[in-house]
Design a protein around this nucleic acid. Sequence first.
DNA 1: CTGATGCCTGACAACGTTGTCGTGATAAAG
DNA 2: CTTTATCACGACAACGTTGTCAGGCATCAG
Lengths: 340, 340
Amino acid sequence: MGQNIHRRATIKDVASAAGVSLKTVSRVINNEAGVSDDLVRRVEHAVLELDYRHNLAASNLRRGQRTASIGVLLHDLGNSFSGTLLRAIEDQARSRRIAVFSASLDDEPEREAILATDLISRRIDGLVLMPTGNDQSYLLADIRAGLAVFAVDRPANGVEIGTVVVDNAGGAREATAHLAARGHHRIACLTDSDSIWTAAQRRQGYLDGLTEYSLPLVPEFAVSGLTTADQATSAVLTMMRDPAPPTAIFAGRNDLTIGAVRALREVGKQDRIAVVGFDDFPTSDLLTPAITVVRQDVHATGAYVANLLFARMEGAVTAPERVVLPTTLVPRGSGELLPT
Amino acid sequence: MGQNIHRRATIKDVASAAGVSLKTVSRVINNEAGVSDDLVRRVEHAVLELDYRHNLAASNLRRGQRTASIGVLLHDLGNSFSGTLLRAIEDQARSRRIAVFSASLDDEPEREAILATDLISRRIDGLVLMPTGNDQSYLLADIRAGLAVFAVDRPANGVEIGTVVVDNAGGAREATAHLAARGHHRIACLTDSDSIWTAAQRRQGYLDGLTEYSLPLVPEFAVSGLTTADQATSAVLTMMRDPAPPTAIFAGRNDLTIGAVRALREVGKQDRIAVVGFDDFPTSDLLTPAITVVRQDVHATGAYVANLLFARMEGAVTAPERVVLPTTLVPRGSGELLPT
DNA sequence: CTGATGCCTGACAACGTTGTCGTGATAAAG
DNA sequence: CTTTATCACGACAACGTTGTCAGGCATCAG
């Protein structure tokens, strides 16, 4: 039943307790054939007796190569987007008994490099990365050494790696067109900093939508650099003071959508200004009006990239390609309000 | 600049490239004093030349003991509760350069044991666990061997370990009292299965609240075993068909709250039936009426348990105790509706 | 010039495990 | 009864790293 010593039992301890050699214990632990039933029993008994726990690090060292672990570096594990991605990847990892290291990058390139190299020191077999810096070439040598790396949500730079993204520009274009088709001429656009690839793509899609309907771009209504819901709220409040304010808003991320809705509530215009948001959120159907969104299937994205990763880890040789998953516009009310 | 070989460089390779001994390379890598500037330069050059990456597994094996990694086993990394906990723990880990393994348990005891022992094989130094099974005694030997373990959100069984929970019963009691104080006599209660500790605690708090106001328990209104929002919706719809339906609802988890709100919308009673939910959610202020909730500070909980864990890992010796963090009732409207 | 002192450096063993190979015993075949 | 094949088991080295210790060299005091 274990003793009070602090040192953990090793196969050496198990071996002497069972009166066999190291190698025999190793064989029993790894379910190798060719050990008599009697010895198997004695070893198993000693294992329980000494609370022996296999040391995977030592095993991996000796066996070389694989550690059956991967790293997942995303924007912020606390938000539902990254959380859902992580969960989807984890589900694929579980069935293969692969352990998952995860961490948040918070859009800090330096952190990305530190965390990635730390994980590489731990000899992860694979890495799913939501690139933050504009240079991932530090991964080159490790990729050559056999590390499987895939980018998700955004492309990487300086390395040719497989990438899974959604059709940000297409979804944003569709959202904008959806509004324009209903007669809106002054459509605002809220996005995060252009240095964030998804934000830039969505803004571009918005511009495409305007072009498609021959609508002029009103620079004051196309605000980028919005990081938080609160910033979106004040941006919208500012616009609403314009003599000819927008009659519709395209919000480039769910927190910005929420910020925009708060602003419209504040000025009592939530039933008159149309809103389409990029990215769904749990209670979007419960707001009044319910929020029309461009939905991306985050879980599917995670599952997709995980499958690519594990296939590569299991030996598949594929050229690095960019997979673009589709988005879906979900009309719920807010996006179907007509201009007043 | 690296070659096309697949084998990774080891300090041995670096040593021969730099024309020094293994040990000197090791010294340079670990920033140990007592190496001449000339050799340091030569070694550093060889390190870059060969794309050498330190092998932490081998290092840990030799150094014994610590791996500077922890495990975090929570209910579901994809939901915001677990996600926020993970993020809070990760933030504490980061500053200590500790890597985090994480996984979801989905309330499956078997999975808990498998994942925990897998992580122990990898010699994690610490573990934060949201216990799922009713027996965590399998951790006993590892705790004796020095593994730091803390439970979060729910207590563990079969082991005496430090635990951080919120005042589920107190918060639920307060919510119920809040409604009763406004004249509600028929208050419904929606909770998950009693086998889930938090659910049972919240139900108990509800019962305490009824007792405090000398209200009778109407069994049909106190529904447990609700797992999903949809189940909450249908439970509420059923109640609403009662000749004397509840005038207020206490929902024991945020998804159940959302399910209840959907049901009330469906029967057009969202402005007449009061609702208080346990656990806040992002848009609770944007619904009409805005939802009154009992809030727990999930990030603080995670930070708290992480600090306990790291303090223990750094040598603090503390008796296993249960920390109960407070909850806050946030009135927003739905909980202040008066009985009709 | 000798001995002591200090600084660099490297040889070696060890961490816990497993692959390789050899040994002895037993069984099957001649 | 001898030869060969088969089987169970163990000795040993190695995975990549670092702690220990000893040796070489230069410096400095006597």
